[in-house]
Amino acid sequence: MTKPIYDALALTLSYLFMALGVGIALCGAAWARSERGPRGSAAAASGAEAVGYLRLSRGVSKRLSKKELYYVPVEGTVGSGRACDVQLPSAEVPGKAARLTLTQAGMLLSPVGGGSVRVNGADYRASVLLDEDTQIEWGSLAFQLYLYDGAKELAAARPTPPLSDGVAEREEPSPRRLFRIKRGSPLNAAAADDKYESGGPDDPGEGPEESGGPDND
């Protein structure tokens, strides 16, 4: 291998390396983008245990498929906005359409912001307990809720639903308070007796998620 041959080879390959570098960067970026990480309904599933799911039972939508499961957490908002725990990306569903809460009596659907929810063809201004046949409707679309077996056990630890108008809005910890971390709200009193690993100074209502399964050591 003489110097000129090596130099020629290295010189030609320098273009190859430039192209390979660009290719690797782009491929890596594309791959990262395609697996962007939990978003919307998947976030709900990984962030909190899913107690069940919504399924599109009637209607046609470009972005919602009848086969897809939209996981529902123990409690959370449902709507088309990205900030919602159950994201139903359709124009017919309002940005923040309603709130779903698991209670002792079952899954409660509550309207938000003084609006109403449409269930089985009728409008309700108060919370509605959902049944296996209940169709939640927005526009021309109707969704049906399915709950897992295990949700019943969880439900036993949940509060009873107030019979007055709607469940109280959960108080979010105010980000404006300096360094303040809320210890837990009274609603979570039942879950306060959690094991050491379960997270601690955190948002209320997320106890069960941290007390993860069998102790591996």
């Binding site: 079952g106 089985n120 307990l129 709950l147 897992y148 949700a151 399964g213």
Partner: peptide, 27 residues
């Protein structure tokens, strides 16, 4: 953890159950 959590609530693989059975429906 994700797998365990799923297993916790879906002992039978996550099929739909009769969600309303045994609970009072108040619609």
């Amino acid at each position: 953890d994700a797998r365990e959590a799923r297993a916790l609530v879906e002992p039978d693989g996550g099929h739909a159950s009769d969600a309303g059975a045994g609970w009072e429906a108040r619609v």
